[in-house]
Structure formats: structure tokens, C-alpha cells
């Protein structure tokens, strides 16, 4: 949401090119995330995990209110230089949508390689699995936490800026995304990139099939129906691994 507003403001107020605006937005949202980590999540690191989540919801509400104050409650439109329509074998699709797909896949692969193949990625995973353990092998957990938040913020800015031209920009634009991400995590398991991809596909296909055979109007409800069904019958998630705690 913040990422979309920053990209939009750069474009409309300063007349900066879309792509450059996105890059600036990645950086700004990344830095904002790091500040939030220092100010909010770092002091909560010894607290029970539920407090992090409550804090996150608090930040969400705060940022939305802030966006409404600065940019107003209206729906804003973001233009894109990539609105050419391309026809591939009878299918027509805008260039923007192709860019979204390509960027999403590229970012996903890069993220996965980063987490799997680099020491920095491994230290992020290590810290998520055992923070003290990470300290004891010599990982600077403060630095890693900040880098993690920077990456998370930057990725959110990319996602929001890319999808804004095909949706709209408004303070509550993130709600549906967050809820769907929640469904995907429950489907695919927390902290697993392949699981997230699989979960995303399951949700995407279910929505598409629902839109075709039931009604397009009910498309977004499907995520929530899935959520309710899964949490009722398998509250630990579908592909959740057995945890030895």
C-alpha cells in the first residue's frame, strides 16, 4: 500500500518514470520497514509471538490511517508505460500483466536462491528457527533482522507498484492481498518458498474454476471459504511439517 502510494506520488508529483519510481519506492519502503523493526519489533523480541502479530496489525492500521491523512480516502489510478495490448495465439493480454508474471517468477527464483545458497539467506532461516542458536554460531542477529525487514519491505513495494495499474490505489488496497497471502501460507506452510508457490497455484486455480463455474462475482469469496474450511478441519495447515518442540 505504502509502496504503491510512493510510486504513484513520484510519478504524479515529480514526473519520474514508472520504473525509476518503483526502484525509489523499494528503497523507501525498505527503510521504513527497518525503522519499524528497530522501533517496534526489536523491543518485542523476547515477548510471546502473539505480541508481534498484534503489533503488526497495529502498524497496518496506523499506516492506513496515515495514508488516508496524506493522500485521502479516494481510489487513485496509477498509469503505466506498459499498457500495450499483446496478442498471443488468439489471447490478448496487456504488457503490464506479462511484466507482473515475469517479475513475480524472477523475484521468487532469486529469493529462493538467496535463502538456499547464500550465508546471508541461511542466517535469515537460522534466525527464524532459533534466534539464540543463530547468535551462538556468530550471526549478528541485529543486522540480519534489519536486512530481513528491508527485503520484506522492498518486495511489498514491488508487488504493490506492479499490481496498482491493473487494480487501484487506496488505503485498504492491501486487505485482500493479506488475507489471500494468509490462505496461501496455510496451504503451503510457513517459511517454505515451494510451499508458497504451490499454495498460490491452488488458490489461483480454485478462484479461476470458481469464477468460471459459479460466478465471477464470488471469486474473492473463495479464498475465505478455503480459509474457513482448512482452519476447521486442519488448523495446523495442510502441508505443515511435524514440529518437534
Amino acid at each position: 500500500m505504502l509502496g504503491a502510494y510512493i510510486t504513484l506520488t513520484m510519478m504524479t508529483a515529480l514526473g519520474v518514470h514508472y520504473v525509476i519510481s518503483i526502484i525509489v519506492s523499494i528503497f523507501v519502503v525498505g527503510v521504513v520497514s527497518v525503522l519499524l523493526e528497530r522501533l517496534v519489533f526489536f523491543p518485542l523480541r523476547e515477548a510471546p509471538p502473539i505480541q508481534d502479530k498484534v503489533a503488526a496489525i497495529g502498524i497496518l492500521l496506523f499506516l492506513e490511517a496515515l495514508a488516508q491523512l496524506i493522500w485521502g480516502p479516494h481510489y487513485l489510478q496509477m498509469s503505466t508505460p506498459f499498457n500495450q495490448v499483446i496478442a498471443i495465439g488468439g489471447l490478448t493480454i496487456t504488457l503490464q500483466r506479462i511484466i507482473i508474471v515475469i517479475t513475480a517468477v524472477t523475484v521468487m527464483i532469486l529469493l529462493w536462491l538467496f535463502l538456499k545458497k547464500t550465508y546471508m539467506g541461511a542466517s535469515i532461516m537460522a534466525m527464524a528457527q532459533n534466534r539464540d542458536g543463530a547468535s551462538l554460531v556468530g550471526i549478528n542477529t541485529n543486522k540480519v533482522a534489519m536486512i530481513t525487514f528491508f527485503i520484506a519491505g522492498g518486495l511489498a513495494a514491488i508487488g504493490a507498484s506492479l499490481t496498482s495499474p491493473i487494480n487501484l490505489v487506496f488505503p485498504g488496497m492491501g486487505h485482500l492481498v493479506i488475507l489471500k497471502a494468509f490462505v496461501i501460507i496455510i496451504l503451503g506452510g510457513m517459511g517454505s518458498v515451494p510451499g508458497a508457490i504451490l499454495g498460490g497455484y491452488i488458490l489461483g486455480f480454485t478462484e479461476a474454476i470458481g469464477a468460471t463455474y459459479i460466478s465471477n462475482d464470488y471469486k474473492d469469496i473463495i479464498a475465505f471459504v478455503l480459509l474457513v474450511i482448512i482452519l476447521t478441519f486442519k488448523p495446523q495447515g495442510i502441508f505443515a511439517r511435524e514440529e518437534s518442540k
Binding site: A122, M125, A126, Q129, N130, D132, G133, A134, L136, G191, R241, E243, S244
Partner: peptide, 13 residues
């Protein structure tokens, strides 16, 4: 290097 009582391994790795 401190080898902790509760081991503090990374269980999913």
C-alpha cells in the same frame, strides 16, 4: 563457542 543445554539447533535444516 557455547554449546547450549537445549542445543539450540536449527530443527528444519
Amino acid at each position: 563457542v557455547h554449546c547450549a543445554e537445549d542445543r539450540k539447533l536449527f530443527p528444519q535444516m
